[in-house]
Design a protein around this nucleic acid. Structure first.
Length: 276
DNA sequence: CGTTGAACCTGTTTGC
DNA sequence: TGCAAACAGGTTCAAC
């Protein structure tokens, strides 16, 4: 679910409402929602959230107490969200964690996740760094044009799986991979190493444009994405291919958008998107 | 190395 | 109407 733009939208809300707050209580309603660091929960209570960052689709809270810090990492998976009030969640039985706060605009923060593909992790710095290094490549918004071009040209497989692989480029998921490839007019099964530098640069510019526009629109509320205050995103209103199978291609050609079952449902225009 | 499919979960939509 | 199958924003692992 939440891909880079949605997580960035969540981050913006958290920065305005929980940054600087002190964790008074940290309550887990389902113990398996915390993957590692159960023994750190008591330390966390009384610590202050001094920084929140996004890396790929993850959020990392720095929790500080005197001059020591621990890190709370949230993975949202397909259906995870953070809410400022429990009443904003559509199903109360899937509220798995509650953080009671003081000294911040929000008095509480709830982790909601029906399918539980995402988890929470509590780390000291070395474990956090090892985790990040093991799991993530460069963030899709941070990477520069030259490193991106090199990454694409070193990709021997198809571009769709490349964009979904967080180890190579972190943040893009199925919605944005489809939208970026369509707008760049590159076929999901095109091979990265066969693209010339101009195509790679175009892909880079379009990737950043799509991600920035999606963030500005509040993300894509396809199913149940909501920001922490319950507000919806609007980028789904300008999706051009995702879930548009059978509809005319929006580039103005007479072709209908196709859907390919493999590689997590690829939506594309067989006329506009070329394999090379 | 790249690709495919299954597994982990619950809820909603689709089709017979 | 009712039930079963298919499908959904993600990630990991095994097998080929």
């Amino acid at each position: 679910m939440p891909e880079l733009p949605e997580v960035e939208v969540i981050l913006n809300h958290l920065n305005g409402h929980v940054l600087g707050g002190t964790i008074e209580t940290f309550t887990i309603h389902r113990s398996d929602i915390v993957r590692t660091g159960h023994d750190l929960i008591s330390w966390l209570q009384g610590s202050t959230i001094t920084n929140i960052v996004r890396k790929g689709k993850c959020l990392i809270f720095t929790c500080q107490r005197s001059n020591q810090a621990l890190y709370l990492l949230s993975e949202l998976g397909m259906t995870g969200l953070w809410f400022f009030h429990r009443t904003l969640a559509s199903s109360p039985q899937h509220l798995h964690c509650r953080i009671g706060l003081s000294g911040a605009q929000a008095a509480e923060l709830h982790y909601w996740n029906p399918r539980r593909f995402g988890r929470l992790w509590l780390f000291a710095l070395p474990e956090l760094e090892a985790f990040m290094q093991r799991r993530f490549g460069s963030d899709a918004l941070d990477i520069g044009e030259q490193p991106f071009v090199q990454l694409i040209q070193s990709c021997r497989g198809r571009l769709k799986p490349f964009f979904l692989d967080q180890h190579r480029l972190a943040g893009i998921g199925n919605i944005y991979a489809n939208e970026i490839l369509f707008r760049a007019r590159v076929h999901p099964q095109a091979h990265g190493y066969r693209l010339g530098a101009p195509s790679c640069q175009r892909l880079y510019r379009i990737m950043h444009m799509v991600l920035r526009e999606a963030i500005a629109a509040g993300g894509s509320s396809i199913r149940d994405f909501r920001a922490p205050d319950g507000s919806q995103g609007h980028f789904q209103e300008v999706h051009q291919v995702y879930q548009k199978a059978g509809l005319p291609c929006s580039h103005g050609c007479p072709t209908l958008i196709k859907r390919m079952q493999s590689e997590r449902s690829s939506f594309y225009c067989s006329a506009c998107q070329k394999k090379r």
